[in-house]
């Protein structure tokens, strides 16, 4: 049996590291570390994109790798760190479900994603299709992280991590989205970040806290 070519091996390693990072984000309670993990995830994503670009020779993938580097490894984490310092939120509160329970659910989700990816991967013609299951798992794990977190800041980090998963999924299935879509998504994320930044300050001003359970009082019906 032929061993896989080196670049594909590296890519698979990237993918598994991404999954690992997702799990550590699920468990991490310090917000600063969470942002660092996000930056690391971005860096891995950037590396994976370069690998795929080298393999397929598609020029636009270099561009999206550069975009990932600028936005997800440097830009957004810096922005988030500044926000954390200005808002003074270093710790998330106790999550909704305890960490071990969250991990168990995460495991189930990974199994589900792999099962889901199998028929899809059979349809895809790319060399990277084996990582599709991981991409779906990253998306769903980030979603789970959003559900279990209480602080707005960690939810935003989880949201960005979900975007990373989407990006990775698109790359595994079809070597990346069309450039226009990718640019659009990048812009969306940036704008969403800015809006959320404003939103954080508003929430804190209203409730003296970033804990989201204060928002429960906003519902119409008792």
């Amino acid at each position: 049996m032929n061993p896989l070519p080196l670049d594909l091996q590296l890519l698979n390693a990237c993918a598994s590291l991404l999954l690992l990072l997702s799990f550590s984000m699920l468990a991490q309670r310090r917000v600063v570390n969470l942002v660092n993990l996000l930056a690391l995830q971005g860096a891995l994503l950037c590396f994976a994109t370069v690998l795929v670009a080298l393999r397929t020779g598609q020029a636009h993938l270099y561009l999206s790798a550069a975009l990932t580097l600028a936005l997800k490894v440097i830009g957004l984490p810096l922005l988030l760190h500044r926000l954390i310092r200005r808002l003074g939120v270093y710790w998330d509160a106790e999550p909704v479900i305890n960490p071990s329970g969250t991990m168990l659910i995460g495991l189930l989700i990974v199994v589900f994603s792999f099962g889901l990816a199998q028929p899809l991967a059979a349809l895809a013609s790319t060399a990277t299709r084996s990582t599709l299951g991981i991409a779906i798992a990253v998306i769903l794990l980030a979603f789970l992280a959003m559900i279990t977190r209480r602080k707005a800041m960690s939810q935003v980090v989880a949201f960005l991590s979900m975007e990373n998963g989407l990006f990775f999924g698109a790359m595994s299935a079809t070597y990346g989205m069309p450039m226009v879509v990718e640019l659009g998504v990048a812009l969306d994320v940036l704008v969403a970040m800015l809006v959320l930044g404003v939103f954080f300050f508003q929430i804190r001003e209203q409730f003296d806290s970033l804990d989201l359970h204060h928002l429960e009082s906003l519902k119409e019906v008792e």
Partner: peptide, 12 residues
């Protein structure tokens, strides 16, 4: 419910 986590759970 008024809780964001619940709304996210609905989508999830």
């Amino acid at each position: 419910q008024g809780r964001i986590a619940t709304y996210l759970l609905y989508s999830f």
